[in-house]
Nucleic acid binder design. Structure first.
Length: 457
RNA sequence: GGCCACGUGGCGGAGUGGUUACGCAGCGGACUGCAAAUCCGCGUACGGGGGUUCGAUUCCCUCCGUGGCCUCCA
């Protein structure tokens, strides 16, 4: 008997029992990266969190009954700016291709190290321009959008319940507006669906009779890609909490008005923000931490556990101390879970995860497995959660501290020490132990009388 | 200024209207020639103030603190 899955829905501000629209196919869309720079640890949070949601759904509904779409946004002003900066001599479109291609490859390498499964579909925005145009024309035709000065704008007042996701009544937003309003907007809240391309910028034939080439606004790509791969409505839409407004609010407005539906996704999930050593991560503070940097010092599995130690909706403070603790925990678990893995996660862990992805509770349950005869269950749970001893071992081998002493020498010194202890020459015995420690080798005298060693971290 | 979230023991971090979270660190014990590793055991908590209640860390109000968002790159 599987536990009932309950998830917190940003749209309703409460936990709800999850029931897919189509019981034969659970559909989830998560906003992926805009590929203009190395992914930082804050970007890793939604990727890891929703990877776990994906694993959980596959377990509950069967792997062939879940479709997970995570996009790559490869058209964006930040990309254009980066491309122009990195490759000043190159044609802008070629430069953009270089930036997006290499950034995407790096992103995939990072995720591989973090134990993240591939989504079922990973669409790129530039491959869905036709769907975007189609959506825009539907919106214009139904009066939800209009053309002005070669732009297409979404008419926010045309949607009576705009603002429901972010819980911002229209009046409040207008009152709090602090940005100059473009003159071609009918309403201050209207947002861009399509805009004209400047010379040299990427451009595509425009919709709605606009003569000049253009490019999509920020939000339309996700409406287009989720439609193409998941349909007009689907089950779960995820991302970071910073995306709730305006990105998700506007996505939702576009899709619902284009398809005349009451919902876009039934359930909206948002992960909390991440800070580094108690401070907001920013380039000016110099605490901007990329996944790549972290992987130089820590195995991906440790980063993964560190991320899951905090409940996904809570703010997380990313610290070296926390990483050290996670590394130790993972090491202990892998030391214990050496037996054949159970094919399923431990029931108590599954139950915790079904309770709005309560990973801290799940981790506590794993500690309980350690204490009892739960080795096989622990191994199975670790595998289920995406932790892989082989990957960890590979990282450790690649990053092992260089010892100035060979393994044979270590073994012979251990033998020497055993002999000294047998003769009760403890001065000699302790000297050997200290010398090895100074060389980075820590000895362990086990209960069975044997002595083993490990490289000191 | 508007909207929202968070504030738990030395640290990390769940949860709950009235019984132990859990982990790390610490302390005590076992083991050890002594340590380390390992095993067993132990302790301290719910930001301030008010209210509701027989009873609040848990609900309400308020204050303080921390953080996020407030769009077309301004």
């Amino acid at each position: 008997m599987l536990p009932e899955l309950k998830l917190y829905n940003t749209l309703t501000r409460q936990r709800e029992a999850f029931a897919p629209l189509d019981p034969k196919l659970v559909r989830m869309y998560v906003c992926g990266p805009t590929v203009y720079d190395l992914a930082h640890i804050g970007n890793a949070r939604p990727v890891i969190v929703f990877d776990l949601v994906y694993r959980l759904l596959r377990h509950l509904y069967g792997p062939s009954h879940v479709k997970y779409v995570r996009n790559i946004t490869d058209v964006d002003d930040k990309i254009n700016a980066r491309a122009a900066q990195e490759y000043p001599g190159l044609d802008l479109n070629e430069a953009i291709a270089k930036v997006t291609f290499s950034t995407e490859a790096q992103f995939h390498d990072d995720l591989e190290a973090l134990g993240v499964l591939h989504p079922d579909v990973e669409p790129r925005a530039t491959e869905h321009i036709a769907e975007m145009r189609d959506l825009i024309e539907r919106l214009v035709a139904s009066g939800h959008a209009y053309v002005a000065e070669d732009h297409v704008l979404f008419s926010v007042p045309s949607m009576p319940d705009y603002g429901r996701l972010s819980n911002r009544p229209l009046e409040d937003m207008i009152a709090g507006a602090r940005v100059d309003v473009a003159p071609y907007k009918r309403d201050a809240m209207d947002f861009v669906l399509w805009k004209p391309s400047k010379i040299g910028e990427p451009g595509w034939p425009s919709p709605s009779g606009i003569a000049v080439p253009g490019r999509p606004g920020w939000h339309i790509e996700c409406s287009a890609m989720s439609w193409k791969h998941l349909g007009e409505t689907f089950d779960i839409h995820g991302g970071g909490i910073d995306l709730v407004f305006p990105h998700h609010e506007n996505e939702l407005a576009q899709s619902r008005c284009a398809f005349h539906t009451g919902v876009m996704a039934k359930l909206w999930m948002h992960n909390g923000f991440l800070q580094v050593e108690g401070e907001k991560m920013s380039k000016s503070l110099g605490n901007f931490v990329t996944i790549r940097d972290l992987l130089a010092d820590w195995p991906g599995d440790v980063l993964r556990l560190n991320m899951l130690k905090t409940h996904y909706r809570q703010p997380i403070d990313w610290t070296v101390k926390g990483l050290e603790e996670s590394a130790r925990t993972l090491e202990q678990w892998f030391d214990i879970a050496t037996t054949e893995a159970h094919p399923r996660p431990a029931p108590a862990v599954l139950e915790a995860l079904c309770d709005d992805l309560n990973t801290p509770k799940a981790i506590a349950e794993m500690h309980a497995l350690k204490d009892h005869a739960g080795k096989k269950a622990l191994a199975g749970t670790l595998a289920f959660l995406g932790f892989e001893p082989a990957r960890l071992a590979a990282w450790s081998a690649a990053h092992a501290p260089v010892l100035a002493i060979s393994e044979q020498e270590i073994e012979s010194r251990i033998a020497e020490r055993i002999a000294a202890r047998r003769n009760r020459d403890f001065a000699a015995s302790d000297r050997i132990r200290d010398e090895l420690l100074a060389q980075g080798v820590a000895l362990k005298d086990n209960k069975d009388g044997s002595t083993t060693w490990e490289a000191k971290r």
